[in-house]
């Protein structure tokens, strides 16, 4: 039980976030109106995704350094959960964009960058599928994973800022930290980031354990 306190924390935080997100008080903004509540769900999902992709890349580096199969398994499961979060982020974003920008998928550099980023990680899964030899698969996909993350970062953080984007914080738009969110919203937003990340880690942990059990059963 002592080891699992963070799961309780995740449940607690997410309950708080969902309650606050549905019924808590939010400032009235033009255009955004009530849809600003989505900031508790949409943005933390992306934050969680990026944190998990970073963790996945770190585990790939660890695999290349010490050659333990387990690290490669952890890396791929983190990438899987990150892809899931990415799809959920797209979904919540499309919902939000439909009400604020008028269409679910406006031609926005950040959206397109993210779509390309997702393609990159889907290609990672395809790459993994095309090897029979386990050792080879682990090593080569670890190399690709690190490479992909290094390209993903400029894709997400640099390219959208060079052009005009509808998203806050890009193309001269102020980031949401500036004035869109008041201190009350931050009290929900930052815990939401932690909560969704913990949830992602939890999902990943379950899948990694399943993977370990399967590996033992096969032997």
């Amino acid at each position: 039980m002592k080891k699992n306190w963070w799961k309780g924390l995740a449940v607690l935080i997410l309950t708080y976030v969902i309650l606050q997100g549905l019924v808590g008080g939010v400032p009235r903004q033009p255009i955004l109106n009530e849809s600003i509540r989505n900031v508790y769900f949409h943005v933390p999902l992306w934050f969680g995704m990026i944190i998990m992709l970073l963790t996945s890349a770190v585990y790939s580096i660890r695999y290349l350094r010490n050659g333990r199969f387990d690290d490669d398994g952890v890396a791929v499961e983190f990438a899987n959960t990150a892809i899931l979060f990415g799809f959920l982020g797209c979904l919540t974003g499309a919902l939000w964009a439909n009400f604020t920008w008028g269409e679910p998928w406006p031609n926005d550099p950040k959206l397109n960058s993210v779509a390309v980023g997702m393609l990159m990680y889907l290609a990672y899964l395809i790459l993994r599928g095309s090897f029979d030899d386990e050792q080879r698969r682990a090593r080569i996909s670890a190399v690709y994973n690190i490479f992909a993350f290094a390209v993903f970062v400029p894709l997400i953080f640099v390219v959208p800022r060079l052009t005009d984007s509808l998203h806050p914080g890009n193309g001269g738009n102020p980031a949401f930290g500036k004035y869109d969110m008041d201190s009350q919203m931050r009290m929900v937003f930052y815990p939401a980031v932690i909560g969704f990340t913990l949830l992602g880690v939890w999902i990943t942990e379950l899948r990694v354990r399943l993977r370990r059990v399967k590996a033992v059963l096969e032997e």
């Binding site: 290609a123 790459l127 390219v159």
Partner: peptide
């Protein structure tokens, strides 16, 4: 196939 699939997204930025 893999060359194309892997390189398109990588080269895009």
């Amino acid at each position: 196939t893999l060359m194309a699939v892997l390189s398109f997204p990588i080269i895009l930025p």
